[in-house]
Design a binder for these strands. Structure first.
Length: 1075
RNA sequence: GCCCGGGUGGCGGAACUGGUAGACGCGCCAGACUCAAAAUCUGGUUCUCGCAAGGGAGUGGGGGUUCGAUUCCCCCCUCGGGCACCA
């Protein structure tokens, strides 16, 4: 009987389905193992041979664990919401639900063809209402929660409200805007809308405003990759940034825990690095460099007190020094008042002797915009009073209210005075809050006056030779001098004309001087302020202090623009190259001289904090995640908008179903298509008095928690039963591509942490171990058409002609040999193609490229399975190479694996005779078997499937050589093979007379005893070069070995009479004689 | 520009903690079977000098540590992948 793989495979696939062998029960008694694949987006193109790589690996592992006695959860589902289906709907009018359904059906058929052990009864689809009901539910949990920084966990928002009632927000500063401060009384006095506005600034799922890529011509919002060089990919229409109301997830609050969590999970080092780079934690300081009083071109626009230190130097000499001196010599009243105001004693943060414009005020609350002046004796003169009035007027123009108190007020009616200050602040903050509500954007942190930079190296502060602002920095417009105005405009126009990509890849140094100067906070030195595209607006403060001697880019910039470089590290800087060391000893650095840089960091931070010109700061690159899309095919938000307040739907009202629509045109003003369906939007109008949110959720909503749903997929009361989530717990092995490194994996980790914090599940990392599968690249084939003709010349002869290289469908090429008849039929154009052959064949050219339709190098697994069988396909994909490595597909190579299975078959059948016998196995046969058991078990455990397949081949080759047909050897071998080639294993297992499925057999245990060798054949090297082999019993004494080796003729020849210097024996490895 | 991952026969790859480099498979060559071909089987196959016995070189290049390096260290070249020039 021949190996009829297709008959066997179809038979068993059917039997397994009928007998429901893959049904997984929540059997809490058995040890569990959860093996998960990243579920696919069901695209219209179907699977190509690259997709199943990870699925086969996880399938093998899942089956292996089952044989090892585990209750294995190995489910599959579909990430069914998404843009392509909607795009397809726009183009063809077919509803996304219909095309998605169709695509899923064909995906499932392709998968089943390969023989995966999925329990389809647990299938989930993110676009099904009974699934997205719980996506919406989790969204509401996020909406109803905030992050308690003290406890480092999410908590219900009600607890925050209780705290506000009690003490305002003193304990829990607002994560969105630190300047928002209020007392318990104030909180209570706020109206509903203000309160909700403030709470929105704390919620884990919140609404804010963000830029989108808006294309007027297409009337729609575009994804980043749909925008190329500032115009839309389709049509090439201009794209502008447009502010739209958007939902966000406050993932930044979890930055630290996401970083911490990486320590306890088994992701590859590269993956962990990618995630921590994305989170991008850096520790340093924010430092403000006051602006020098150079003329500016910008108006004092918007009545903002911008650059508090302007003219400061001109008017008062080193005025900043004065402020510091004044602080050290306060009057009695000032001292008393400072003690009453400092450390937020009133609930407001006050600074003293703080410069604003060209004044130094006694006390100021920058959040409430209140200045407090303590008037002593000399304020009573007429001239002084006039000056004071003028000063108050100017400050008022900047937005400050000045409250004047006398020395007497402070000294004798202290409490009354303090209360007065507090009330004034209260009043002010309310109006400020309202202003904010109107603008819907956070106010800048006023009064810091100057260029605020973030630096991780405050120790280098005396090496600052210039400052650089991002071109987008708001100060650029305001500080540029008239002389530099034209140059700056030109530079900004240049930057504007460049795409992000171009700016990123740019090696050239570009920049422009603004004409303005900042003042060094310690030395008082003037520092030129430049603009350059190498500073990014979105990171840190969008401005840097440049230290050329310690930073490579700063150094190049300084050299390029001839900016003098200050050396603060002596010999450690050679004048040619920046030295970013932290170990050098500081020089030229005033009070830091002689200090090691590493130690100076802390000293400087303390100093700037003391001087109140900066503070210690932990900075993250990561931004909050935009969580809404202006699209139809996604989860609707369970939110109603009423009078500008977001009102969540009740849990009982979920799922909020997506309405059926006929067109997918965007709504007005860039809203999603749902905005066009007024009946749907207003379905709660009568009961709740508002319309529904018309955005939908992004792709990663459904995929952030699907691993939980598989545990209890049909639960109608909860997203999953707690008993089930406790049992199945973390995913033990998660397999998928690297493209999800920072998106899906980070969001999913965050959601898990939130659900854990809120007590819904018992673990806070979703995936214990992650395996990344590499891509399978296509192996393209080319034909060469002689230019201007329909003649094709074989690869070896093409250089004799002028030819065009054209992709040809790999499916009509055998190796490199083109099937010319099939080629003629391939496209009408080639019908009467002529060929110039070499040796009677047309040889194609080749190249390894990404597998894609347009390159005609896509190989469909169905065709391979049809020709060689699923078992061969599975093993071959694994045999190609290490799972995490990318490699090219080569259909030719599959023959070897196929031959292996045929050879295995022949151990059971010779022609039509079943040749299995019950004889006792010989020692060498047992050694072969147990060597295989050991190796294959170890390789499977460490996901080294390619070497395991090799071992199968070695094993079968050796058994075939011995003509071994013994049941006691072959039966365990079949169990071993079951995870890799389940169909043939099951068939032969039954041929051996077994009645129950091999899927539940027990994995054989290997016996070390059979592996023991009595003799070992040692390679003998002289001076490291192997010269001969000598066999010794493994337990021979070294002295005996030495004697025999040295007596050996060949060894003696190579020793050439020289004395032995060293004699090395590595037991069971090798022998080396050194002469 | 920065970060990550790779470079081993004609090809995919193996060599787990430094110990016989090239397992296993493809391809190729030779042979068997056959009228012939396919299929199958057997043997060979890193390069190089040599009829052979045997020698020499060899894991991208150069240097180093070591009795011994594909493996560890330094420098360079090169190919993939990613990026938000990350201060």
């Amino acid at each position: 009987m021949e190996y009829q793989f297709r008959t066997i495979e179809k038979k068993w696939q059917q039997r397994w389905e009928e007998e429901k062998v893959y049904l997984v029960e929540n059997n809490y008694q058995k040890p569990k193992c959860y093996v998960l694949d990243m579920f696919p987006y069901p695209s219209g193109a179907g699977l190509h041979v690259g997709h199943p790589l990870g699925y086969i690996a996880s399938d093998i592992y899942a089956r292996y664990k089952r044989l090892k006695g585990f209750n294995v959860l190995h489910p599959m589902g579909f990430d069914a919401f998404g843009l392509p289906a909607e795009q397809y709907a726009i183009e063809t009018g077919q509803h996304p639900a219909v095309t998605t359904e169709k695509n899923i059906a064909s995906f499932k058929e392709q998968m089943n063809n390969i023989g995966f052990c999925y329990d389809w009864s647990r299938e989930v689809r993110t676009s099904e209402p009974d699934y997205y009901k719980w996506t919406q539910w989790i969204f509401l949990q996020l909406f109803h929660s905030w992050y308690n920084r003290d406890k480092k966990k999410a908590e219900p928002i009600d607890e925050l409200i209780a705290s506000f009632d009690k003490e305002g927000n003193v304990s829990y500063p607002c994560p969105a805007d630190e300047s928002v401060q209020f007392s318990s009384d104030q909180w209570k006095s706020f109206d509903k809308k203000t309160k909700q506005g403030i709470l929105m600034n704390y919620r884990l799922a919140y609404c804010g405003y963000g830029d989108v890529n808006w294309c007027e011509a297409l009337g729609t919002v575009l994804a980043n990759d749909e925008v190329i060089n500032g115009v839309s990919e389709r049509g090439g229409y201009p794209v502008i940034k447009k502010k739209l109301r958007q939902w966000y997830l406050r993932i930044t609050e979890y930055a630290d825990r996401l970083l911490e969590g990486l320590r306890q999970i088994e992701f590859s080092e590269a993956m962990k690095e990618m995630q921590s780079n994305w989170i991008g934690k850096s520790v340093g300081a924010d430092i403000v460099f006051p602006l020098s009083g150079s003329p500016r071109r910008g108006e004092r626009s918007q009545n903002l007190p911008g650059f508090g230190y302007a003219e400061y130097k001109v008017a008062n000499g080193v005025n900043f020094e004065n402020a510091r001196k004044n602080r050290k010599n306060p009057t009695e009243a000032e001292s008393l008042l400072w003690n009453a105001l400092r450390n937020r004693a009133t609930g407001y943060k006050f600074r003293r002797q703080h410069p604003i414009e060209n004044y130094i005020v006694d006390f100021v609350c920058l959040d409430a915009w209140i200045v407090v002046e303590v008037d002593g004796g000399y304020h009573n003169t007429k001239e002084q009073q006039a000056l004071d009035i003028e000063r108050d007027r100017l400050l008022k123009e900047l937005g400050f209210i000045t409250l004047r108190v006398t020395n007497e007020d402070v000294l004798f009616e202290t409490e009354k005075t303090i209360n007065k200050i507090k009330e004034t602040c209260n009043l002010s903050i309310r109006t400020s809050m309202e202003r904010k509500e109107d603008n819907m954007k956070p106010s800048p942190h006023w009064g810091e006056g100057g260029v605020r930079v973030f630096t991780t190296r405050p120790d280098t502060i005396f090496g600052v030779d210039f400052m650089v602002l991002a071109p987008e920095h708001e100060l650029v417009e305001q500080i540029t001098t008239p002389e530099q105005s034209e140059a700056i405009d030109e530079y900004l126009a240049y930057v504007n004309s460049r795409s992000e990509r171009e700016r990123m890849a740019e090696k050239k140094i570009t920049g422009c001087f603004t004409g303005a100067y900042a003042i060094h906070p310690f030395s008082g030195k003037e520092i030129p302020i430049w603009v350059s595209e190498y500073v990014l607006a979105g990171y840190g403060t969008g401005a840097i202090m440049a230290v050329p001697c310690g930073d490579e880019r700063d150094h190049r910039f300084a050299k390029h623009f001839n900016i003098p470089i200050t050396n603060i590290i002596g010999d450690s800087y050679n004048g040619e190259e920046a030295n970013p060391s932290k170990d050098a000893v500081l020089q030229n650095s005033d009070f830091l001289n002689g200090m090691k840089m590493q130690d100076a960091i802390e000293v400087v931070i303390q100093k700037v904090e003391e001087m109140e010109i900066g503070k210690r700061k932990v900075n993250y690159k990561m931004r909050d995640a935009a969580f809404s899309r202006q699209r139809y095919w996604g989860e609707p938000f369970p939110i109603i908008w009423k009078d500008g307040i977001a009102i969540p739907l009740d849990e009982k009202e979920l799922p909020l179903q997506l309405p059926h629509v006929e067109t997918y045109k965007p709504g007005p003003e860039g809203e999603g298509p749902l905005a066009n369906i007024t009946a749907w939007v207003n379905q709660f109008l009568s009961t709740k008095g508002g319309g529904l949110e018309t955005n939908t959720m992004p792709g990663y909503a459904g995929s952030s928690w699907y691993f939980l749903r598989y545990m209890d997929p049909r639960n109608e009361k909860e997203f999953a039963d707690r008993k089930a989530t406790d049992y199945w717990n973390q995913v033990d092995v998660y397999i998928g591509g690297t493209e999800h490194a920072v998106g899906h994996l980070l969001y999913s980790r965050m959601w898990t942490k939130v659900l854990y914090d809120l007590g819904f599940i018992g673990f806070d990392e979703p995936y214990r171990k992650l395996i990344n599968q590499g891509m399978i690249a296509g192996d393209s084939r080319f034909v060469y058409r002689i230019q201007g003709t329909n003649q094709f010349v074989s690869h070896g002869l093409k250089d004799q002609y002028q030819t065009d290289e054209l992709h040809v469908d790999v499916n009509i090429v055998d190796g490199f040999v083109l099937d010319t008849e099939a080629f003629k039929k391939w496209k009408p154009d080639y019908e009467d193609a002529a060929f110039i052959l070499e040796n009677g064949q047309y040889i194609c050219g080749s190249a390894v490229e990404k597998m894609s339709k347009s390159k005609y190098n896509v190989v469909n697994p169905d065709i391979i399975v049809d020709k060689y069988g699923a078992d061969t396909f599975r093993m071959y994909e694994m045999f190609l190479g290490p799972i995490e490595q990318s490699k090219p597909w080569d259909t030719k190579g599959i023959e070897g694996v196929h031959r292996f299975l045929k050879k295995l078959w022949r151990l059971f059948y010779e022609q039509d005779n079943f040749v299995i016998n019950n004889a006792e196995p010989a020692e060498n046969e047992l050694r072969i078997l147990h060597k295989a058991i050991k190796k294959i078990q170890e390789d499977t455990e460490r996901f080294s499937f390619n070497t395991a397949v090799s071992q199968f081949m070695i094993c079968v080759n050796e058994l075939a050589a011995l003509n071994c047909h013994k049941r006691k050897i072959l039966e365990p071998l079949l169990i071993l093979l079951t995870p890799y080639a389940p169909h043939i294993s099951e068939e032969l297992w039954h041929q051996l007379g077994n009645k129950r499925t091999v899927l539940d057999a027990a994995f054989p245990t290997y016996n070390e005893q059979y592996l023991k060798e009595n003799n070992f054949s040692y390679p003998v090297a002289v001076n490291g070069k192997t010269r001969t082999e000598l066999s010794f019993p493994v337990d021979t004494l070294q002295a005996d070995v030495e004697k025999e080796v040295l007596a050996n003729e060949i060894v003696q020849k190579w020793m050439d009479g020289k004395p032995v210097k060293k004699f090395i024996v590595v037991k069971g490895r090798m022998i080396n004689v050194v002469v």
